[in-house]
């Protein structure tokens, strides 16, 4: 997929673990793993909003378009 999820980078910058983020935004670790691995087909605005709020970042910090 051309959309890349940079969640690992943002998490590392903030010294946060996946488990902590999953608890903060109220999704399972399994779902967060799907999102991080790029296997997810779509992301809800509500999830994106929760991630941005928890990590204090913009959607563009998490998602990027990469030409294949």
């Amino acid at each position: 997929m051309s959309i890349v999820v940079n969640l690992n980078t943002v998490l590392a910058e903030r010294n946060l673990k996946s488990k902590e983020l999953a608890e903060m935004i109220g999704i399972t670790e399994a779902n967060l793993s799907i999102l991080k691995s790029g296997k997810a087909k779509a992301i809800r605005f509500s999830t994106l909003e929760a991630i941005c709020k928890a990590l204090d970042c913009q959607p563009a910090d998490i998602l990027a378009y990469k030409k294949e």
Binding site: I27, N31, L32, L35, K39, A40, K41, A42, I43, T47
Partner: peptide
């Protein structure tokens, strides 16, 4: 269903 399951 698969797409829905993979919507986070």
């Amino acid at each position: 269903q698969s797409e829905n399951d993979l919507t986070i």
